[in-house]
Simulated assay, not measured.
Amino acid sequence: MVSIETKGHNIRTSGIRLSEPEAKKIGAKIWKNECGGTLEGLTSWNKGEYFASLGIGHFIWYSQVKEGPFEESFPKLIQFIASRGIRVPKIARTADCPWNSRAEFIQSKDSPQMNELRQFLHRTISLQTSFILTRLEQALPKMLIQVPVNDQKKIKRNFYKLLQSPQGKYALMDYVNFKGEGTNKKERYKGKGWGMLQVLEEMRLNIPSSQATLEFARAADHVLTRRVQNAPNDETKWLMGWRNRLKTYY
């Protein structure tokens, strides 16, 4: 059971055990990874992308103009926060991102709506951490369905080995938010995925618990390098940043 406190609200998620100090530390790390730990970074639209990236996890929000193969997570986050009785800004309650392009988004960066959204995301960092934890909790059964019975033992063993340490919990939470579970068939290049499932499959067996996060990072590097090699467009520019992120896992 995890309990994360946030200004009078107590959010409980059953399953993976996470202390309040661990939750705060992990949330801060993910915020730094995605947003540089800045308030402005909580509302972003990266150059070359066709979607907004919001919150500590840079949760994807598509406009009605264009959707892509990557899983849209911001509307799910909003549903999660609203279900906890937290008031959500009107602009965040719409199904589609109200800004149809990066140019529109940047032009509105200092608007009252954007400032309200940014402050809301800053106030709900603990809830966003809880949302990512919930996604991780739900990931294992989703992953096991995707693999043959003979391979399920390896996935479970590596998953639970990582959960034995705070650093391993962080690595799993960050990666599932960063690159997903690996179960979405649309998230494939040349038939190969790059999510948590593919990383757990790539990990070697019988790694000591003390080296689990290092092995997870090594396997993730292999999977992400393969993604870049298989990508229909040049994604080389992202690889160095991804590798720097993986170094925070060990």
Results as ranks from 00 to 15, higher is better:
2 V>T: 15
3 S>G: 08
3 S>W: 08
4 I>S: 02
8 G>P: 06
15 G>W: 08
15 G>V: 09
16 I>N: 03
17 R>Q: 11
17 R>M: 01
17 R>G: 02
18 L>R: 07
18 L>E: 07
21 P>N: 13
25 K>L: 11
26 I>C: 02
30 I>Q: 07
37 G>W: 10
40 E>Y: 06
40 E>P: 03
45 W>R: 01
47 K>I: 10
50 Y>K: 13
51 F>L: 01
54 L>A: 07
54 L>I: 09
54 L>F: 08
55 G>K: 10
62 Y>L: 05
68 G>W: 10
71 E>V: 12
79 Q>W: 00
82 A>N: 12
84 R>E: 03
86 I>S: 01
87 R>L: 08
88 V>P: 03
92 A>N: 06
96 D>I: 03
100 N>S: 14
101 S>T: 15
103 A>I: 05
107 Q>D: 05
110 D>R: 10
112 P>V: 00
113 Q>T: 06
116 E>K: 12
118 R>Q: 07
120 F>N: 01
122 H>P: 00
127 L>R: 01
128 Q>L: 07
133 L>Q: 06
134 T>M: 12
136 L>I: 12
137 E>F: 05
141 P>L: 03
142 K>A: 15
143 M>K: 05
148 P>E: 11
152 Q>A: 08
157 R>N: 10
159 F>P: 04
162 L>I: 10
167 Q>R: 15
167 Q>W: 09
174 D>P: 07
175 Y>I: 05
177 N>E: 02
177 N>T: 13
177 N>C: 13
179 K>E: 04
184 N>T: 04
185 K>N: 06
188 R>P: 06
190 K>M: 02
190 K>Y: 05
192 K>D: 12
193 G>M: 04
193 G>Y: 02
195 G>C: 01
195 G>E: 01
202 E>V: 02
212 A>F: 01
213 T>G: 04
213 T>F: 07
214 L>S: 11
215 E>C: 05
222 H>G: 00
222 H>F: 11
224 L>P: 08
225 T>Q: 15
230 N>I: 04
230 N>M: 05
231 A>Q: 14
238 W>S: 12
239 L>F: 15
244 N>P: 01
245 R>D: 04
245 R>P: 09
247 K>A: 14
247 K>M: 14
250 Y>T: 15
